[in-house]
Simulated assay, not measured.
Amino acid sequence: MTQRLSPATAAMLAAAPLMWAGNAVVGRALHTLIPPITLNFVRWLLAFVLMLPLAWQVLRPASGLWPHWRRYAALGLFGIGSYNALQYLALQTSTPLNVTLVGSGMPVWMLIVGTLCFGVPATRRQVVGALLSVAGVLLVLSRGSWQELLALRLVPGDLYMVLATISWAFYSWLLVRTSEPQDVRGDWAAFLMAQLVFGVGWSGAFAGVEWSLGHTQIHWGWPLAAGLAFIAIGPAILAYRFWGVGVQRAGPVIGSFFINLTPLFAAVLSAAFLGEAPHLYHAAAFALIVAGIVVSSRR
């Protein structure tokens, strides 16, 4: 059942893609300094260390985490171990335009995964909202010219982004399908730490495979350190906090429409830091995406 959005919930669901837009910008900037899977592992390892003072109690043997370890292992796999690793990997061989275009299908994948795997059929409003939202993203990606979309050429990185998007759809549905143990449910730090315990393990295992294939070159320095600090605090900790609470309140389908604000926020960040002025089609795309959110969230 769809739910109405409160201003606080909408603000949380909007803050997450704002930080993830920054993550895409920084991830692209770091792609020549560190291998993509290793970047994901180091990012989450730093987040784990930062979260220890806030949620170390989750690691105790008597914690409610361990009886529910399968749930947190799945959340850690789909949300931490897989999604960003696949996104960083996609940016190695695909263009930012292609990656963002593939990621813009999130509402569609959310509806498909919910219907086929979680027994939640899509409503007519949700389908209409998904189409409006995707149309808004396509308008941004095409820069107001559909000829630019027709000129796209798919590369292996696009497949990685498809897998990343599907992974995030499973993660979002799992957020609302199972209740938490009492000592984890009411504490956002404990809930994130419960995912990090397994997510760091998954991302470390994937990084080990990457290193076994010979991708071991890391260029340490202040640019890499600053980038890691940002993605470990903002997109990793704060964005996951906002997304988790927002999805639990509004549902994964409505939340998925907010993800399509990411390319718009990226355009704003580009204007702020790269001197690229926004255009009229940015305003039109914003209107379409907001219309999709409103239509899908009405009762």
Rank of each mutant, 00 (worst) to 15 (best):
L132Y: 05
T32R: 10
W146V: 15
A74F: 13
L288G: 00
A135D: 01
P7T: 09
D183N: 13
N23M: 06
Q87L: 13
Y72V: 07
S145L: 14
A47G: 08
L52W: 11
L224C: 03
S94A: 15
F257D: 01
L228P: 12
H219C: 10
L65M: 12
L5I: 06
N260T: 13
I233P: 03
W20C: 08
G246T: 06
R125T: 06
Q92C: 04
L86Q: 06
V209S: 01
W66F: 11
D158C: 14
P61V: 07
G199L: 11
A272G: 10
L192H: 10
A73L: 15
F265T: 03
V42L: 12
S212W: 15
P61E: 11
S256E: 10
L50A: 09
L224T: 05
Q3W: 10
V294K: 11
L30C: 09
T115S: 15
I231N: 01
A130P: 06
M12T: 05
P61Q: 11
G255Y: 12
Q147H: 15
W44A: 00
S256P: 07
I254M: 05
L175Q: 12
T123S: 13
L91W: 04
L18G: 15
S63F: 07
A85F: 07
L269Q: 14
V58S: 01
S167W: 04
R43Q: 00
S6Q: 13
M1Q: 00
S203T: 15
I166A: 01
V200W: 12
A62Q: 14
F41I: 05
W243P: 14
Y281Q: 06
A232L: 00
R4I: 10
Y171G: 06
G157I: 06
H279Q: 14
Y171C: 05
I237L: 12
V253N: 03
G221I: 11
L163E: 04
P107A: 11
L213T: 11
V108M: 15
D187E: 08
L141N: 12
G79D: 06
V134T: 03
A11G: 11
R177D: 14
L59C: 08
G119F: 00
T165I: 08
P53S: 09
G214Y: 13
H282I: 03
L46Y: 01
A266W: 00
P61C: 01
A10D: 12
T95G: 14
T93H: 13
P107E: 11
G201D: 13
F191H: 13
T38Y: 04
S297E: 04
V290G: 00
L269K: 11
M12V: 03
V162S: 08
M19H: 03
F191V: 00
A250G: 01
A8E: 05
L159V: 15
P35E: 04
L86I: 07
L131Y: 03
